[in-house]
Write a protein that binds this DNA or RNA. Structure first.
Lengths: 296, 296
DNA sequence: TCGATTGATGCCTTCTTGTTATCACCGGGT
DNA sequence: ACCCGGTGATAACAAGAAGGCATCAATCGA
């Protein structure tokens, strides 16, 4: 069975007009060629598709079934071609994105939402991971792009800042300092600290240590948790305080107060990071999107 | 865009082997022809589907997308051809069937079940109607085949008996006659009768009148209902009795007793009835089925 | 560095596809 | 009753596309 699309197009034209001459005209074709094409098709299928009364043409029941099938077949072909073109231009495919607590608390959700609206045919696969973990995942191509905490020291990685957070103090609501509109960093010198575990938060822990050192103290760590939610939970349990980023303001948790941190102007930058993107790839689409449609 | 299936077949062959020479061999084709075919396809699509390293061939992401699309496209084409063939042989299509109370209480459900298993691609459309109504529907082609109560007096209609029922007495459970294992017909002579309305049951009413007349009485009708369920409902309400067919045994209704009717050997025949079926039609399939796979 | 293997290219052949001219058939108008 | 306009089918021929053969350039492995 070596049916060709030409024959199907011919058949559809005839099925539409129920008139060989007009159908041939629509196909920019002489009528005899059309007659033979249809005959061949019928022979190849082993099915008579049209009933010719030498005066009027009508579809047989089988012809009607075949017409419906061919109709959606042609639609599917167009769709397939369209998708291939989209895939080539990077508008269709899969994109694996890594993210940190800070990114997902900050600009990332909005970015993703807008990107998915702009490119609905791109499947996004999200993976949580520390900055260190994500840079490794980038290297072995487990993810296409990472949202990590600066600085990024890796070769062949391009970065683009997408978020800049000031520090905030996070306290139990009942804590005396929670009465103030702003907490000075040195007021926290003697407080018990709750921070993220080294395995996942080493990057931020370095920033935090540096910040406290500048303020003249080293934080007394009494508890560690795996993520922001865990840290906040321990704080609401009155176990201590922490210094976090203003993006945490998106977390609403009863029993926890967030206050601007005075005595420092330092900020933490979250950046997108990726290996060189080949032109026309899904990744390059995403990077373009990040650069042209930045913070919203 | 005048892509041909030949090109798609060629592309699929290459996508499978990732080797032009072997693919060409599979297609019973020289390698250069294949190269040109694929080039043409890529040009027509405006998409590069394959990455040739002059040493190894691999699919581009777009090529992968296109391959998947083409794969299901070819499947759909085969399926469409298969369906057309089925439609031609009457194994696919729509069949409108009419039925009476007696038919649906008797053999029809079993017949339909077995037919649908044998021909799963035939849509069956069922319509309830009296014998009279169904013969009219046959005439105007609203139904393809009818299951009616004999006799059938209509021109150009073929009939095939499918069911033969003896009469039964139907009584309230509390009725004295319900104590007996069998009820004699003349014992019902003075009982109040509940029967179907003339508009729908005229055919059976004639049979019933003839039966009673032979037994020497004319039934005293006190209530009429539209269908068997209605009749049985009124009987369970102790409003009277009726003479029905043994197929009604399939109805289980508390408060109603069904007993063989003595004093007569008459039967009522239910038959399939249809207009001449053109060969290869869905109807002819069904008729063949009825004749070869009868009562089971 | 050389040989083997890959896909691409140029040229020619072949066969499919399409065109023109014509036929047989049917319906409607005169 | 007849003819004319329109239908799809057929035959012979022309055009073009698809395929085959010989060969090239690039790459990999020994």
């Amino acid at each position: 069975m070596k049916i060709e699309l030409r024959q199907i197009r011919q058949f559809l034209a005839v099925a539409e007009t129920l008139n060989f001459r007009r159908a041939a005209e629509n196909l920019a074709l002489a009528q005899p060629a059309l007659s033979r094409g249809i005959q061949l098709l019928e022979h190849q299928l082993g099915v008579s598709l049209l009933k010719r009364n030498n005066r009027r043409v009508e579809l047989t029941p089988a012809g009607e079934v075949f017409r419906n099938g061919c109709y959606s077949l042609m639609k599917d072909l167009e769709e397939t071609a369209r998708k291939a073109r989209k895939a080539q231009s990077g508008e269709l495919g899969r994109l694996a994105i890594g993210y940190t607590d800070f990114a997902i608390s900050g600009v990332l959700p909005g970015v993703l939402d807008r990107f998915r609206r702009a490119f609905p045919d791109i499947d996004i696969e999200l993976t949580y991971g520390s900055t260190r973990q994500q840079l490794d995942d980038l290297a072995i191509r487990r993810i296409d792009i990472a949202f990590v905490t600066k600085p990024v020291d890796a070769f062949g990685i391009t970065t683009l800042p997408v978020q800049r957070d000031r520090f905030v103090a996070v306290l139990p609501s009942a804590h005396p300092l929670a009465q103030l509109a702003q907490v000075e960093i040195r007021d926290l010198a003697d407080e018990p600290f709750i921070v993220g575990v080294m395995a996942r938060w080493s990057h931020y822990r370095r920033h935090l240590d540096a910040l406290c050192l500048k303020a003249g103290f080293s934080p007394r760590i009494v508890q560690e948790a795996y993520n922001t939610e865990g840290i906040f939970g321990l704080i609401s349990a009155n176990m201590g305080v922490t210094i976090h980023l203003e993006c945490a303001a998106n977390y609403v948790r009863s029993g926890v107060a967030i206050r601007p941190l005075g005595g420092t102007d330092d900020t933490i930058v979250t950046a997108a990071a990726w290996r060189p993107a080949e032109p026309g790839s899904v990744l390059s689409r995403f990077v373009d999107f990040l650069q042209t449609v930045p913070a919203e």
